[in-house]
């Protein structure tokens, strides 16, 4: 790491500097300019790590979306599809305004393309030590509003499996409370199959209950249900049973949350031509656009006026 020219912190400063949290790539590049060394401008990793995500948030408040669900349920595919779909033009009223992790999106979309050499679309499972944050900037197609930053949390499904079965606590996944939107992912392919439905349902309920523990999320408003591979539901031999299961899950979520929980259906990379690339993403982006931020408010301790004048009410 390049030496910083910042003055030494005072003796009683906390042992960790904010710089550890807010590592700014430009600082390294500017320092490199001073030393004459060849230094990378920014990370060529395929996603942002925590300090880089924080450095981005320090400039402009991003909307943070985390999709929570088991391994293989399609979380990464949703993120890849947003990028791949924008690669063909604006959609859903949004246009691509930039990304710090284009390489990350390209790496993920690679498995859907002929350049991968595969004969059918595929997506690599996210690993625990993969950098988690994908970044994309969107602007409304009419350019009426400023561009908005989205940080997409691409986490290993194993974290959520452990959360669901109580091997992990929500406090160990602090990104959950930071997220403005948490999409609990339900694997539509499993719901569609009678033999897999019960297990998928149970796992969803476990995860739901864990996510709705007080203080796990920024608020119950953060939660939505995201059904991936919803094209499978249309082909299901027991479509009615599948729909009934989803309705019950939605009801359960709404009851636990104390408010209606939205349920979105996606089929982002279907083999069925009725479901084009990115099917359902417009609704997801609309949801993110309508409420880009979820703030956690806390009132001060109540103040009891001490005088009659202070207690006066009209």
């Amino acid at each position: 790491m390049t030496e910083s020219s910042e003055p030494a912190p005072p003796e009683d400063a906390p042992s960790a500097r904010i710089d550890d949290v807010l590592d700014t790539p430009e600082t390294g590049a500017e320092a490199a300019g001073e030393t004459g060394a060849e230094e990378p401008l920014g990370s060529r990793a395929t996603a942002l790590d925590a300090p880089e995500a924080n450095a981005l948030a320090a400039r402009r408040r991003p909307t943070v979306l985390v999709l929570a669900g088991a391994v293989g349920c399609g979380k990464t595919s949703v993120y890849a599809a947003i990028y791949e779909r924008l690669g063909r033009g604006p959609f859903g009223g949004w246009m691509f305004a930039g990304s710090r992790t284009i390489a990350g999106f390209e790496q993920r979309c690679h498995w859907w393309r002929t350049s991968s050499g595969g004969s059918e679309p595929y997506m690599e499972h996210t690993r625990a030590n993969d950098l988690p944050w994908l970044h994309i900037r969107l602007r409304d197609s009419e350019s009426r509003e400023p561009a908005r930053d989205l940080l997409l949390g691409d986490f290993d499904g194993e974290f959520f499996d452990q959360l669901a079965d109580n091997r992990m606590q929500p406090s160990e996944l602090p990104f959950l409370r930071r997220a403005d939107h948490v999409g609990l992912v339900i694997d539509g392919e499993h719901i569609a199959k009678v033999t897999a439905r019960a297990a998928e349902r149970q796992q969803t309920e476990y995860l739901l209950e864990r996510l709705l523990i007080p203080d796990a999320l920024a608020g119950t408003d953060a939660l939505s249900l995201i059904v991936t591979k919803s094209d499978c539901l249309a082909r299901s031999r027991d479509a009615e049973g599948a729909e009934s299961c989803l309705a019950e899950l939605n009801q359960r979520a709404s009851k636990l949350a104390g408010r209606p929980v939205p349920l979105l259906r996606l089929a982002v990379r279907s083999q069925d031509p009725q479901f084009p690339l990115g099917h359902g993403l417009e609704t997801l982006l609309e949801m993110l656009g309508l409420r880009p931020a979820l703030q956690i408010a806390a009132d001060p301790e109540p103040y009891e006026p001490a005088t009659a004048l202070g207690r006066f009410r009209a």
């Binding site: 991968s116 595969g118 004969s119 059918e120």
Partner: peptide, 16 residues
């Protein structure tokens, strides 16, 4: 170029 919905036209080995 996205992989076609139907199986490839025989050009791809299937090995990623």
């Amino acid at each position: 170029e996205l992989i076609e919905i139907h199986p490839s036209k025989g050009e791809s080995s299937g090995e990623r």
